[in-house]
Amino acid sequence: MMDETIAIRLEGVEKNRSNFRLGPLHMSIPKGCITAIVGPNGCGKSSSFSLMLELTKSDTGTIELLGHKVGQGRNTELMKRIGYLPEQSSEHEDNMKGTKKAEFYRFWYDSWDVNRYRELLRILEVDDNGTLGKMSKGMRRKFEFALALAHGPELLLLDEPSSGLDPLAWKTMIEILHRYMDQGDHTILMTSHIIEEVKRLADFIVFMAQGRVLGMYEKDELFSSWSTLFISGDELTAKKAAGAPGQCGVEHAGGTTYRITTNKAAEAEKWCASEGINIVSRQALELDEIMSALLMQDRLSKRLK
């Protein structure tokens, strides 16, 4: 039975290559939200997009976009409801003028809005009369971003959207995406290495590593639950602290101070109070620190198997 609250569903999706295995992927991306996939380079983020868009075929599993299964006959009408910004521009289009590529998009998408397209070019300060291969990386990125949005897609797939953008253009892109989401029925799935970008945009965060999904979290809950607690005591206190809820590591921080990394901050604080462990200070973890802790947990779980 179709779940109308889900924009993208991956169930047991795998793609095997000679030097890399993607999956099995299990992922449910909610409608009306922005979900960011984060992870190290080469973890399978871009490959996952390719599978969703049938640019490559999965070996096993099922993929659903906007309630339609991918890979069962022609998906032309479905793809018209999707906007896609790949991480890398196509070298085959380097000799093409921006106006020519826009004409192609206008032919392909029934809902192409030339007024919206021209508005986006104006806001982003892009001249589409130039040859694509002669545009700077940032200018071409802005042009292709405008193309991805101009037909009013229901689902927007953005692979490192801010790559090559200067700070002012990046801020403009963030504002455009916020306005895009204001309609309430739009969904964005994006990848990003920019922590501030994820913080500003994402409602949910998916962590990936080595071709697998490590977990999916609601952003505000994620940042409130992952913390470092600095405690005072001796080695016996540190050993005792290993029993703290959500404990992901206890390390010596110098002198008589130790730090506990936990993904259950509120529970860990209450536990420390009940155990008579003095918390000196607290520090919320940044996204990259959470990613490192998850990777460490993943490596440890593999060793124990």
Rank of each mutant, 00 (worst) to 15 (best):
L53F: 02
L66T: 14
G32T: 09
N75S: 13
S58G: 15
P24Q: 14
V13K: 08
Q72V: 14
L65F: 09
P30Y: 15
V38N: 01
G12H: 04
R17Y: 15
E11D: 08
T35E: 01
L65V: 12
G23T: 01
V38T: 13
C33K: 15
G71C: 02
S18L: 13
T76W: 11
L22R: 05
M52V: 12
H26N: 15
E14L: 03
L53C: 04
V70L: 07
I37Y: 07
H26Q: 13
L66N: 02
P24E: 12
T60Q: 13
G61Q: 00
G67E: 11
S48I: 02
S28W: 03
N16P: 00
F20D: 09
M52F: 03
T35V: 10
L55P: 06
P40M: 05
R21S: 14
M52S: 02
T56R: 13
S58N: 15
L55A: 13
H68C: 14
G12P: 02
G32E: 08
T76I: 09
F20E: 08
G39D: 06
G71E: 07
K45V: 06
H68M: 14
A36D: 12
V38Q: 10
M27C: 14
I29A: 10
I37K: 06
L22A: 07
K15A: 05
K57Y: 03
S50G: 10
R17I: 09
D59P: 05
G61S: 07
T35R: 00
V38W: 02
V38P: 06
L51C: 04
S46A: 04
G23A: 09
G39S: 05
E64M: 14
K15H: 05
L25V: 07
L22C: 01
K31S: 15
M52T: 03
K31A: 05
G39R: 08
I29Q: 02
T60P: 09
G67T: 08
S46M: 00
F49L: 06
R17K: 15
N41D: 08
C33E: 15
M27N: 03
Q72W: 04
V13G: 06
K57A: 12
S46N: 07
K45S: 11
T60M: 08
K45Y: 08
V70W: 07
L22S: 04
R21L: 12
L51T: 02
G44C: 01
S47N: 12
L53I: 13
N16C: 06
S18Q: 14
K45W: 07
S47D: 10
V38C: 11
S28P: 04
N75Q: 09
G32Y: 03
V13P: 02
P40K: 06
D59H: 03
R17V: 10
